[in-house]
Design a protein around this nucleic acid. Structure first.
Lengths: 354, 354
DNA sequence: CTGAAAGCGCTTACAG
DNA sequence: CTGAAAGCGCTTACAG
């Protein structure tokens, strides 16, 4: 009687083999090994555990869930896993869920409200115990609905006032960049701000603008360009910034590394040498930033930990605790793309003009 | 009686509401809407379906699985989801599984044999119907074990002789690069070959070497450098190639875009201008390749489709079909990083020497 | 300390 | 065409 495949041996089999009643076996296997708390005679318990181990018994989770009304399943929704930022956060979730004996479904919504809803329903129909939402939109009435339906959930990556979330302190991150660029002498800056419905981009932009203005700088509305978070989005945005009729900025803050990479490409085609004619700073400090031909300055956000914290928060909610949002601290990493000072009188010129 | 949350209304509830027996309701809801094949009276069927829809009835999958011994769950194991290549493949899986009414668990093994095993057991203990394995090692005895245990599975991304898989035609991909570099005049080439346990790197390298030799070129063993697939791995490998005591190659083929990006970084620090002093070609044509400051030539592999095909194959296996491995065709995309001819007598020099 | 019963929500032969 | 029963594999009061 060896376990060819999980499921081949049941509680009943074990009981029969040992001449016990299934309920007795269940009671023993269910309680933690240390807490013998009168659940069974130590000798019996040992016999049961030994056999269970020997035959590789693994309880049927479907049967267990049916009884307990808990699936130990978590649902995770992200815009897209091909976004490295979300992929890394998910690695954190995977780890933490594993530690807590939960399994996770993860689905891509492509930031589309309809798909978002559909994926959510699929997860709920699978009876997940709770949801981690990584693609919340600022206008997100869907969350109110979830609350009304009493679905346990937390936010990750993006935050919305009134809901528990695990995020980076994006406002602070933006402020760090503003301070850095100001210190390097930049007075004319533009921002590639991401999607207006995502708190990440909005908060980073807001943090940047506030600090820059507090330092005495000015940032007209026209200097803020909304865009997609990917390389193409950044390229397009930077292109429009650099071809602008007014004075060209000497620095660009992109709220996402991939957008920053796209911006570097655009700068390049405008004949600008990033790190000399133009400073660029990204956000997230993904693994590529430091390795690029021109190393990219970026704000490191603890993506992996954000995933872990999201799980922790959700487990708290499932446990009935009152949970507080967590904002993890960002760290600015200065590299070649912005590691130079901009002279007061210096003008932004193209490399060709030099 | 509205469906606040899936699970709030059961088959029994529906039956009671309609004055029918639960088994009748089950029979009606179970059969497809079109096949009324004598399962119930059309009128009854309609009444049932109407109410089910109205109250948002969704069957409890745990209960269903317990009866049918099928979970409609697939397990997916990848080295890491933060590898864009696997992330995109997973998007294909997510889509195809969704279409077929399956849900998927995806877990990261970090290419570690122990973790691989552990994640597999977790999935089996969850009673997945089948497994998609994206991290197979060439020395993979684990697969024989799975076969023995009669676990349905297919491979994705990496292939192993004797098992059904969905992959790119990596050998052909490598050959395309060899032909291209040869045509541009390169006679001295090096290969950043990836991990020796991964068929992807091995096959791409083999395809490259075979074609290059068939064209009359020579490639010493020392020109092949094994490495990790990520940016750092590529950087280290390229560094060792470029600091080599012998003649410096005029072209490098990296079997992965991220390794290629790392190689570009290394070339840079050796004072070489990629696209003039050194040609670099990557593999997979990830979304970044075309956007880099120096656009990267790369072999496009249909990652998304590979994911979809993997699901299709696995569903075939679950259906008892005899399935054949699928190798999808790659396409070479030439860009700035290799779009120049290398003169016969030209010598690889550093930019500084010019 | 252990057993026996009930039941979680379904599906599926089997009657009628 | 519909009903009644059995059972998937577990857990959990309740007895004894």
């Amino acid at each position: 009687m060896t376990d060819i495949r999980p499921g081949s041996v049941t509680l009943k089999d074990l009981a029969a083999e040992l001449g016990l009643h299934p309920s007795t076996v269940s009671r023993i296997l269910h309680g933690k090994a240390d807490t013998a708390r009168g659940a069974a005679a130590p000798v019996t318990a040992e016999r049961v555990r030994d056999l269970a181990k020997k035959v590789g018994y693994s309880p049927d989770p479907q049967a267990t869930s049916l009884r307990t009304r808990r699936t130990h399943l978590l649902g995770v929704i992200v815009p897209r896993l091909s976004d490295l930022v979300l992929a890394v956060m998910y690695e954190g979730i995977d780890e933490a869920a594993d530690d807590a004996n939960y399994s996770t479904f993860v689905m891509n919504s492509r930031d589309d409200t309809l798909i978002q809803r559909r994926k959510m329903e699929i997860m709920l129909s699978r009876r997940v115990d709770g949801l981690i939402i990584g693609d919340a939109h600022l206008d997100g009435n869907i969350l109110d609905e979830l609350t009304e339906r009493k679905v346990p959930f937390v936010l990750m990556n993006r935050t919305i006032a009134g809901f528990a979330s695990a995020t980076c302190d994006d406002t602070l991150g933006g402020a760090l960049v503003a301070q850095h660029l100001w210190d390097q002498g930049h007075r004319d800056v533009s921002i590639i701000a991401g999607e207006p419905y995502a708190s990440t981009g909005v908060d980073r932009t807001h943090g940047f603008v506030s600090r820059f203005r507090a330092l005495g700088g000015t940032i007209p509305e026209s200097a803020i360009v909304w865009s997609r978070f990917d390389t193409t989005g950044g390229h397009t945005a930077a292109d429009s910034i650099l071809r602008g009729t007014h004075r060209r900025p000497s620095a660009i803050f992109a709220v996402n590394d991939f957008a920053a990479i796209g911006a570097m490409g655009a700068a390049n085609s405008h004949g600008l040498h990033v790190g000399r004619d133009l400073a660029i700073v990204g956000f997230n400090d993904t693994s590529l930033a430091a390795q690029l031909p021109i190393a990219l300055s970026s704000v490191r956000s603890p993506m992996h930990d954000i995933g872990r914290v999201a799980v922790k928060l959700l487990l708290g909610v499932l446990n009935g605790d009152a949970v507080e949002s967590v904002k993890l601290a960002p760290v600015l990493c200065v590299r070649d793309s912005s590691d130079f000072t901009w002279e007061a009188g210096q003008e932004a010129v193209t490399a060709r003009q030099r």
